[in-house]
Computed example of a mutant assay.
Amino acid sequence: MTVDLIAVVPTNSLGRGVFRYYDAQSECAFFVAEPSVQPTLWHGYLDGALEVYRRFGVEHALEYEAVADGRSTALVFAALDASGEMVAGVRMQGPYTAARQAHALVEWAGHPGAEQLRRMIADRIPEGVIEAKGAWVARSAPHRGELSAAISRTVLHGARLLGARYGFATVASFTVRRHQSCGAVPAEGIPAVPYPDERYQTVPLWWDTRSYTAFAEESQRSLVQAEQDVLGIPPPRPPDAPYGTGRGAEDRRGHGL
């Protein structure tokens, strides 16, 4: 999907609810905005998501009609390559005020682990939980691995921009290692579910903006920090207690382990 970069995000709109940073690994510029601030960017994201999900026959997982007006989305991240091609995107919901708002509970409804997952989300809501949904990367993107990692890092950026401590997402099991390299931790004790259909085993992941560095690869930690510097996000507040001790520390239990 080729778009006019200036038409999507006019230069004079930067700093007016629109954020931008560059990922040298994927050679893409990332734009971040509320759907209502940049509707062209939002609709470009939706079109790209629909095309990718339809290719795999899982477009129902997007719930396109329910989310198309943008009101359930707090921020959208969209990656454009040097030619102006939109090649990846993801949207963020939240911060949530109640566990029932999390889409993951729809995915686990009627499956083992549903109640444990609800409690995990509810326990974190006082410190802020956002959920990443509708992630996609174009098959034609020349640096798909690097671009996929960049999309994973957006969960940390989205949480910080929205004032939340925790980022959350449900992902296909074969992508877990990629997200772990960016600081994600699988939720222990929550069995995978066949979602959006029996071809996939989907699992829940958590990112903690205060302690992801204990789990992320060094290369990804450096990229997260560099991108957040550009976004004007200050360094995260460290955990309240040493790693692995106390309720305030984001130890493995805090990550759902």
Rank of each mutant, 00 (worst) to 15 (best):
P10F: 03
N12R: 14
A7K: 15
L231P: 05
M1N: 12
D208Q: 09
T2W: 09
P239H: 10
V58K: 03
V185N: 01
W108K: 04
L231V: 04
F174L: 03
A122Q: 04
W136T: 10
G248C: 06
R237D: 12
R177K: 15
L46R: 13
P35M: 10
D123G: 02
P142T: 04
F77Y: 15
D81I: 12
E34V: 11
R153Y: 00
R247A: 15
F19C: 09
R20C: 06
G15Y: 08
R16N: 14
L80K: 03
L5S: 15
P235D: 11
A79M: 04
R119N: 10
A192H: 01
A249E: 03
Q116S: 11
P242W: 02
I190E: 10
L80W: 12
Q101P: 02
R253G: 05
E131A: 01
Y212E: 05
E127T: 14
H111R: 14
T154E: 01
D251F: 04
A159P: 00
V106P: 01
W42V: 09
G128Q: 01
S140Q: 14
L41Q: 12
E85H: 13
I151E: 05
Q116H: 08
H143V: 01
V37S: 06
R119I: 03
L205P: 04
P126L: 02
R16P: 02
G17S: 11
Q228V: 07
G134S: 12
H143T: 05
A74C: 08
Y53I: 06
F77S: 07
A99P: 02
R119D: 15
E65C: 10
L147V: 08
Q228L: 06
V171E: 10
C28V: 14
R165Y: 05
A66C: 05
V37W: 02
G254T: 04
